[in-house]
């Protein structure tokens, strides 16, 4: 009995050690990124783990730079994120609900077409998107929102999976009691899918903060850095200038850390919803 206990203790110690080791491996690069953002460096490359010289000048620099209007980027991204969050969530939830709870003629074809569309790589469509938006004179933040919202209709899988798990008997009972389907949607469907709405909304909110490709294609032609979003602005900081970009490198890292913090917190908070969302569809296997 004693040896069994000792064995278990040993196993626990071993597991703790393993876990700690893994955690260290996982976090080292992240810690390094944060450290690098505090390092003084003008060569465009950080070669040491521990900065040779600490400074907070990078953070001061990024917030006061006139060429790289970081605060405008933050504001733009926030506006885009909020608007596209509201609209995308509405679109995604509507589509998911309709496909899951309502029966209509084009339901199945729609599911199949959506599946097919999702398999084309998106890059080629960017050229077309650019010209579509250009013909509406929408090569700006508004156009960017349109693109995000326009794509939201195809992101229904997870939400649909979630709706599929809610027993349908409730809807039927309500219909028999004389409720319209709209009332069922508003008073039963939406309240029950609150975690799903939170998940969809947060994902839509995070999107604009991390997308540097679409935003680059759409926003770059304005040439006005005040209209950029944060991801493209930061990316552009590294790639637009020969030579001098090396001097901005640590500022770039500082800017990255600034936006990574809120996104990380949001994500950590919503990890539960994320898991629920992903597994809901798969639960019935």
């Amino acid at each position: 009995m004693k040896s069994y206990k000792a064995q278990r203790r040993l196993s626990l110690v071993f597991r703790y050690l393993l876990l700690t080791l893994l955690a260290v491996v996982w976090l080292v690069p992240i810690v390094w990124i944060v450290l690098a953002s505090f390092s003084y460096n003008d060569t465009g490359f950080v070669s040491t783990f521990w900065p040779e010289q600490f400074t907070i000048q990078n953070y001061i620099g990024i917030f006061t730079s006139s060429q790289f209007p970081f605060l405008y980027w933050l504001r733009n991204t926030f506006v885009v994120a909020v608007i596209s969050m509201v609209l995308s969530t509405f679109v995604t939830i509507s589509v998911a609900y309709a496909l899951s709870r309502l029966r209509f003629r084009f339901r199945k074809p729609f599911l199949q077409i959506a599946l097919v569309l999702g398999m084309f790589p998106g890059f080629m469509s960017m050229i077309a998107l650019y010209y579509i938006l250009k013909s509406f004179n929408m090569l700006n933040l508004g156009g960017l929102i349109l693109v995000y919202v326009g794509g939201a209709g195809l992101g229904f899988y997870i939400a649909k999976g979630f709706f599929d798990t809610i027993p349908r008997s409730m809807d039927e009972a309500a219909i028999i009691d004389g409720a319209t389907r709209w009332q069922v949607f508003i008073h039963i469907g939406l309240p029950m899918s609150r975690p799903m709405i939170v998940y969809t909304a947060l994902m839509a909110f995070i999107g604009p903060w991390i997308d540097f490709i679409f935003s680059g294609i759409i926003l770059s032609s304005s040439g006005n850095p005040k209209t950029y979003t944060i991801a493209y602005g930061l990316y552009n900081m590294l790639h637009s200038t020969k030579g001098s970009s090396t001097t901005y490198f640590t500022q770039f890292i500082a800017g990255c850390v600034v936006i990574a913090i809120p996104i990380t917190i949001l994500f950590v908070v919503m990890q539960k919803f994320y898991v629920n969302g992903i597994t809901a569809g798969a639960d019935k296997g």
Binding site: Q67, I127, Y130, Y131, K134, G216, I217, S220, S221, S222, G223, N224, P225, N236, H239, S240, T241, K242
Partner: peptide
Amino acid sequence: LTQSPNGSSNAKTDVGKD
């Protein structure tokens, strides 16, 4: 006067895009 999208070294692609 504005900044070019990806710098003068990428002028060909920047101009070629549109």
